[in-house]
């Protein structure tokens, strides 16, 4: 059955709702005036961003360091978790499922606050390392679920066949299970990376004074008011997001 005109109109309006504000921000990143009235095309805000905004790039570097390291650890642990959940005993699955489901459902702010209190109680100094710990913690349930979805998609008898043909456990893991899970592992990595790069609330609580990440930096700039430099940063981040979304199109179904 073809959806009616009303659903089409709602869809078009929803897409406009998504994109109009973003497009406005992108357009005004090329404005020559500081205030939001169009006075002519200019690249000066990008020039300012690239030449005299070292502090922003330092926060970007921090985000990349945390993003890459936390997603690697998160994917490795999440994949091993998914394999154990896929092949483990029923009772074990139940434990895994509960441990995964709870952090998945509770609001991020609770994870942030509880880790802040936890680190402070143990006298751990807040730094990039505490952000790394927090990011692995909140992204691991996602990476586990994504890899598990991929594993559930394929026929378990292939693993049985590997054993029948004499494969040992570690051979089966390296030659059968991991290759089969690979699309899920890739999707999981990028999901974890995106979650890490975007996270504001959890990082807000576990970051120390010298470990500002890009979202924390953007937050303090936005709080200060509108500025074309934020428009320029937004445009660049958006380009990155579009590029990644297009490149990872075919992995999307492991995420939703």
């Amino acid at each position: 059955m073809k959806p009616g005109n009303l659903t089409r109109i709602i869809t078009i309006l929803a897409i406009l709702f998504f994109y109009l504000p973003i497009i406005v921000v992108v357009v005004f990143s090329f404005n020559s005036s500081k205030s939001p009235e169009w006075t002519g095309f200019s690249l000066k805000w990008y020039y300012q961003l690239f030449t005299s905004s070292g502090y922003i790039w330092r926060t970007f570097l921090n985000s990349i360091i945390v993003g890459v390291s936390s997603s690697i650890v998160s994917v490795v642990l999440g994949t091993l978790g998914a394999i154990s959940m896929y092949l483990g005993s029923k009772k074990f699955k139940q434990v895994m499922w509960t441990t995964t489901y709870i952090p998945f459902t509770i609001p991020d702010i609770i994870i942030g606050v509880s880790l802040l209190i936890f680190f402070t109680t143990l006298n751990v100094r807040l730094s990039l390392f505490t952000i790394f710990i927090a990011h692995v913690t909140f992204s691991m349930p996602y990476t586990m679920m994504i890899v598990l979805t991929r594993l559930h998609d394929f026929d378990k008898s292939i693993i049985e066949a590997a054993y029948d043909l004499g494969a040992t456990k570690s051979v089966a893991l390296r030659k059968v299970i991991v290759p089969v899970a690979m699309p899920g592992i890739i999707a999981a990595f990028f999901m974890a990376f995106t979650l890490s790069i975007d996270d504001f609330v959890i990082t807000f609580f576990v970051a120390g004074p010298s470990s500002t990440t890009l979202p924390l930096q953007i937050f303090s700039m936005v709080r200060f008011g509108i500025s074309p430099v934020i428009n320029a940063i937004s445009t660049l981040l958006l380009l990155g997001t579009i590029f990644m979304s297009v490149a990872l199109r075919r992995y999307v179904r492991y995420i939703i």
Binding site: G81, I83, G88, F92, I102, P103, F118, A134
Partner: peptide, 19 residues
């Protein structure tokens, strides 16, 4: 195969359940 998931469980216990 449970042992593959043990690090995952220990990590979430230390950094999620306990906090």
């Amino acid at each position: 195969y449970e042992k593959y998931g043990s690090v995952y469980l220990i990590w979430l216990t230390i950094f999620f359940v306990i906090p």
